[in-house]
C-alpha cells in the first residue's frame, strides 16, 4: 500500500522509516556510488530530509519499505535549485505549483509494480494539491524504468557518467499517464483514492447540520 507521510510523521511508523533510509543507503551509496552521507546506523539522510518533506512510500505487506520518493515545493530550498541550476538553464525554478521529486528509491528485489505504484501516487498528489509539474532528480537507470511503466519524464539534462549519472526530468499530470501507471501497478483508481484519503482525510462534511 501507499503511505503519504511528512517527515514529522515518520516516527509513527518506525519500521518503515528505518527501512526507507537503509534502502536509500543501499541504492545511492552501495549500488550507485553517489557521494551521499550514511550515518553510523547505515541510514542515508541529507539536509533536505531535515526540511519536513512529504514522503510517498510503497509499504510492502510485511510493513517494510518497497520504494519511496521525497517531495518538496520549489518555493523553499530544493536540491534542484541548489545543485542542478545549470541543467535548468542557469537559474532557479520557483513556484508553489512546481514541486521537486528526489531520492526515488526502489528496495533490492522490489516488485516490478512498485515504481508504477509510486508514480500513480505522484499523480494523486498533483491532481489533489493543484501541482502542475514535478521536477525530478533520479539516477539514470530510472529513465528505462519510467519508460517501461509508461511514465517517462521529459529529460532536461544529466550530470556525471555511468552509474553515477544523475538525470533531471519533468513530469506533468495527465489522465492517460495515470491510467497507464495504474494498470502497470495493478491498483484501481478507487483504491488509490482511498489510500490518499486515509493520509489526508476523506472529505466528509465536518459536521452534520444538526450538530
Amino acid at each position: 500500500m501507499i503511505r503519504y507521510l511528512y517527515g514529522d510523521q515518520l516516527s509513527k511508523m518506525p519500521k518503515l522509516e528505518e527501512a526507507m533510509f537503509l534502502d536509500r543507503a543501499d541504492q545511492f551509496k552501495m549500488r550507485l556510488g553517489w557521494d551521499v552521507e550514511v550515518d553510523g546506523a547505515g541510514r542515508e539522510r541529507d539536509q533536505y530530509d531535515a526540511m519536513n518533506p512529504l514522503y510517498v512510500i510503497y509499504e510492502k505487506p510485511d510493513g517494510t519499505h518497497g520504494g519511496s520518493m521525497r517531495l518538496l515545493p520549489s518555493t523553499g530550498r530544493t536540491m534542484v535549485n541548489e545543485h542542478f541550476a545549470d541543467i535548468l538553464g542557469g537559474g532557479e525554478v520557483r513556484s508553489p505549483l512546481i514541486w521537486e521529486c528526489t531520492r526515488f528509491c526502489l528496495s533490492r528485489g522490489a516488485e516490478p509494480r512498485t515504481a508504477a505504484a509510486l508514480m500513480l501516487a505522484g499523480g494523486e498528489v498533483m491532481e489533489n494539491f493543484g501541482v502542475k509539474h514535478f521536477v525530478g532528480v533520479f539516477d539514470a537507470r530510472m529513465v528505462r524504468i519510467y519508460r517501461r511503466i509508461g511514465a517517462s519524464p521529459e529529460i532536461l539534462g544529466a550530470m556525471g557518467a555511468g552509474k553515477e549519472k544523475i538525470s533531471i526530468g519533468l513530469w506533468s499530470f495527465s489522465e492517460q499517464a495515470r491510467a497507464r501507471v495504474g494498470a502497470k501497478a495493478g491498483i484501481s483508481a478507487s483504491l488509490s483514492r482511498q489510500w490518499f484519503a486515509r493520509a489526508f482525510g476523506a472529505g466528509h462534511p465536518p459536521l452534520a447540520q444538526s450538530a
Binding site: Y6, F200, G201, G203, P206, L207
Partner: peptide, 19 residues
C-alpha cells in the same frame, strides 16, 4: 508544518472542542 492545500472537510473535527 505542511505545504499542501486543505479543504476543511478533510480535517479532523471529531473532538468536542473542535466541534
Amino acid at each position: 508544518q505542511r505545504f499542501h492545500p486543505v479543504d476543511w472537510k478533510r480535517l479532523d473535527w471529531s473532538s468536542k472542542a473542535a466541534r
